[in-house]
Structure formats: C-alpha cells, structure tokens
Design a protein around this nucleic acid. Structure first.
Length: 483
RNA sequence: GGCCCCUUCGACUAGCGGUUAGGUCACCGCCCUUUCAAGGCGGCGGCACGGGUUCGAGUCCCGUAGGGGUCACCA
C-alpha cells in the first residue's frame, strides 16, 4: 500500500512550503487509494514553539488535506509526535551500538568546532572525522555508564559510494567522503532527524517519502540507516523548493510564507491549494483551474517539473478572483465574506441583501478582504466621500438635484424604471450620460469605482437613495462653505 | 569553496527527434461601457551558451555558464 506523510516541525507559523509538499503527498496517496499521515517532528527542544502544532494541523485541514493518521486523530502506529517516541529511538540506537554499526562520541561542542575548522582548512566539506571510533568499546561504555555526556554516531563507509534512487531524477551517487558519521542520538537523549525519520517512516510503514529538495543530499545517510537496520527503504521523491521572486528560497524576508497570512488576507483555501498545485504540476489538458479531486485523478510524476518555481502572489490573486467569480457559487461567496465583514465591524441587514451586494461586486474583488475594503458604503450610511467623488459632486450639483427629483417621482427604483427615467432625462437635457451618472455615483457611494448605477439604485432602494443624495448635497454645501 | 540538483517568454508551464515552439499571469492595444472591474479580441515576449549524435534537435550526450540546495548534538 502506498503511504505518504507530511512531517512538519512545530517551530513557528504554518509554512506554505509544508502545504505545497502536503498537496503532492496527499495527491499521491489518494491516487493510489493509500494513506496520508501527519507526524510532528518536535525533537528540537530549543526551537519548539508552543501552539505551532495546532496552527499547522488547522492549516492542513483548512486546505482540505484530511489525513488518515496524525497526532490529533491517532492511528495504528502512533504516537505521531516524535517527542512521545523517545524510548523507541533510544532502543534502536542501542541496537546499532550493539551491532557495532554506531559508536559513542564524547567531544564537546567546542571541540567539535575546532575539528570542523581544522577539516575546513584541509578542504573537506563536512565537520567530523570519526575520531571517536578509535575509543575502545569497553572504555566508551564505562564513560557512558559514569554519566559522561555523549552522542551516538552512525558509522558510515570509509570508501566506495552510496547510490540513491530519486524517483524524479534517477540514480544519484555520493562518495563515501561526502557522507559523515552523523549524530543519531543527541546528548540530551533526543534523536536527530536522521534517526527519527528512518525509525518512524519504517514503523509507520511509509512507502513513499515525498519531501523538499533540501533533503536530497541527506538521503544517502538515511539509506545507510535503512541498511544498518536491515529494512527496506521507501521510494524517494524530492520536490523543488518554492522560490521567492528573484530566485531565492521563499522566506520571511522575501514574501509571505505563513498560511495564516493567506487565510487572513482573504484567500480561499481552494484557490491557494490550486495555485500551489500548479507549482510543478500541470494538467494534461493545460487547464489551470482544477479541484483537488481532479488533480488526484490526473496525477502522475511525469507531469511534475523540476525547476524551482517562483511563488507569484499576483497570479495567486488572479486565481483567487477566478474562484470568487466563476468557481464558487454566489451563496458560497456570501458565506465566506461574513467573517471578514464582522472582523471589520460591519453588519448586514439580511443574507439576501448581502448576496445582492456580493453579486454586484463579484467581478470587482479578488480576495475576501478586498471586498470589505471596497464595499463598506453598502453597510454604513455614514460612508466617507473620496476627494475625487467630492469633485464630481461639486461639478454636478445641478444634475444631482434634478436627477434626485426624477428618481423621487418614480414609484420604485427597479433597474428598468431607473434606466428609462435617467436616460430620458439626460436626453431631454442634452446631457452625456456620465454627466448625470458620476455625480449620482459620488453621492450615493462616496466613490467613483462602483458597480453599475442601476444595480446600485435597485440594491439601495428609493428611500436610502434619496436619503443618501440629501446627505451628499449637504456635504457638498459644507464643502462650498469651507472654501 | 567541496558535493548534489536544476535550466523553454519577466513569472507558472505544455513539449517527451520533424511544431509557424502552445496556454495562463503580468504588461500593451482594441471592443463592450454611466465609473471601476469583469469579459471578448489582438499584441509584446522564450528554447542560457558551446560542442557533439542524427537526414533532422527545445527534445539525446558532453562541456561551460547561471541559479538553487547542502555541508549542525536544526529540521
């Protein structure tokens, strides 16, 4: 059975990179009718951030990546939090020690720094020369028994090479000199990534490891570990890393990397997930808007490209707008807008009203928060007047008063009736339509960028329109006086 | 710097030996139009470079360059 996992570290906010890898892991598992699991890699006590795990799990769910096993849902191979599996790692480290495949090392961090520097001078790329291998077994055990702080290191080959198979790139060969005797168990008794990931992936029966390319060069270490334990290694897939505009790895400095940001900015999880999927994956028919389900159906590794994709928020915005105006139903969009309106302290008289406004605004906003920014005048009678709107008001006072009377004479401001009346008025007076529309628009919205006038009139209704015009007229007078 | 990976328009990508190198975002123009959008139509723009292999290379091989990753008791 195909089993994939996402293994985030709770060291901060939920990262888009986690979601990106998660989407591919999820798709591959579902494609094969397999399982997708979440494991929390919290073995670094220094970098642990309280609440980070919750944020990550919430984000995965938000994106629709439901997992079959995880720290909060359990599963047959738990616990799914590495900090709760320490005994396991110690036991397996001991096993390697007993087999002579690992050894205890007693250098302090200062000594290691010195060794590293020395090796650096000799032009060697990494930081430990394996000197503790020479400590006799009995002596090492005695020192350990006496409580001397130490780590356990993997004994890697002195010569030859290790060849790994990356499913996306083929065989990659690493010379023995490139594979250091890495630490497996730290002096605090916690495992390092290498030990923990191998033990857990094996015990949790992960068959396909899908992760970021930054892990590629550490794969031989893990392969060696699988061999040391006598276990079958999983298939390895290394996805290119997301880049920031300019090419550097996406980071806090170069762009928005927190999933919380995207949620708060009013991006839809469907759109973000869709956009992330296009970072490396493409549909056979070239379509860019597709559901998770459609991705799963069409998914194939030879449709995945290996160049590091640049994350372009501009295009994400476009895609989000596309979802708002073409993918989600109008009712769905209205629902999603509610928390954003509430967050801005705006209320709406009824769902029907909110939906009418949303319908009119639909082609005019690309994120949910943008709707709030551009639509406040629909939800507040004391809307402000933009400078440009004030200018239109002053220029068109006469037309505004006249059109007010025209509208006041109508029984109701339906699209059809308003249009007929306004057009007739403009024609009789020989006015360009915009000469009457712009002052009216400025008056009833305080803005010059709005939906069509007849929709506005219908949405507000006669009473509110007339009240708004009066208020604008008054505002214009105050402007005159102030001058 | 050593090692490893990657390389098609500014960005995301299609292409899997024979294509006028296609699509999307962005940008520009036109249309629609009461404003702003959306939408429609059109345009700009690319196979990093050099060698091979081949009747024929964006597609295969080698080299160079560029970009990225990695060299922790972090993941």
């Amino acid at each position: 059975m195909v089993k994939t996992r996402i293994a985030p570290s709770p060291t901060g906010f939920p990262h888009v990179g986690t979601a990106y890898i998660g989407i591919f892991s999820y798709a591959w598992a579902r494609k094969n009718g397999g399982r997708f699991i979440v494991r929390i890699e919290d073995t670094d006590r220094k970098r642990y951030v309280k609440g980070a795990e919750e944020g990550i799990l919430r984000s995965l769910k938000w994106l629709g990546l439901d997992y079959d096993e995880g720290p909060d849902v359990g599963g047959p191979n738990g616990p799914y939090r590495q900090s709760e599996r320490l005994e396991l790692y110690r036991r397996y480290a001991q096993q390697l020690l007993d087999a002579g495949l690992a050894y205890r090392a007693f250098e302090t961090s200062e000594e290691l720094a010195a060794i590293r520097e020395e090796l650096q001078k000799k032009g060697l790329g990494y930081g430990y020369d394996g000197r503790a291998r020479r400590i006799p077994r009995e002596e090492a055990e005695a020192r350990a028994a006496a409580g001397e702080p130490h780590v356990i290191r993997l004994k890697t080959p002195d010569s030859g090479s290790t060849i790994i198979t990356d499913e996306l790139r083929g065989n990659i060969e690493f010379a023995a000199e490139e594979i250091p005797d890495v630490v497996l168990l730290k002096s605090d008794g916690f495992p390092t990534y290498h030990l923990a990931v191998v033990v857990d992936d094996h015990l949790m029966e992960v068959s396909d490891v899908i992760r970021g390319e930054d892990w590629l060069v550490s794969t031989p270490i893990q392969k060696l570990l699988y061999q040391a334990f006598g276990w079958d290694e999983p298939k390895w897939y290394h996805l290119p890393l997301l880049r920031a505009p300019g090419g550097a790895k996406l980071s806090k400095r170069t762009g928005h990397t927190s999933l919380d940001y995207y949620r708060q900015a009013g991006y839809l999880p469907e759109a973000l997930r869709n956009y992330l999927a296009t970072m490396g994956f493409s549909m056979p028919d070239g379509r860019e808007i597709f559901t998770l389900q459609e991705m799963i159906e069409a998914f194939s590794w030879d449709r995945v490209s290996l160049g590091g994709p640049v994350f372009d928020e501009e295009k994400l915005r476009w895609m989000n707008g596309k979802y708002i105006r073409e993918v989600l139903s109008l009712e769905e969009v209205c629902e999603r807008l509610k928390p954003f309106l509430q967050g801005a302290g705006l209320g709406w008289e009824s769902d029907a009203y909110l939906c009418k406004v949303t319908e009119a605004m639909r082609p005019r906003f690309e994120t949910l928060s943008e709707f709030v920014e551009k639509s406040a005048y629909f939800f507040d009678e004391n809307y402000p007047f933009a400078p440009k709107a004030e200018k239109e008001l002053k220029k068109g006072l006469r037309e505004l008063r006249e059109v007010r009377d025209i509208l006041a004479a109508l029984p109701e401001l339906s699209h059809e009736q308003s249009e007929a009346a306004i057009k007739e008025y403009a024609q009789e007076r020989g006015l360009k339509l915009r000469k009457v529309m712009q002052p009216l628009r400025a008056a009833i919205t305080g803005s010059l960028a709005t939906p069509g006038m007849y929709e506005l009139l219908e949405i507000f209704g006669k009473e509110r329109v007339l009240a708004r015009i009066e208020r604008a007229l008054q505002h214009a007078e105050e402007l005159e006086d102030g001058r």
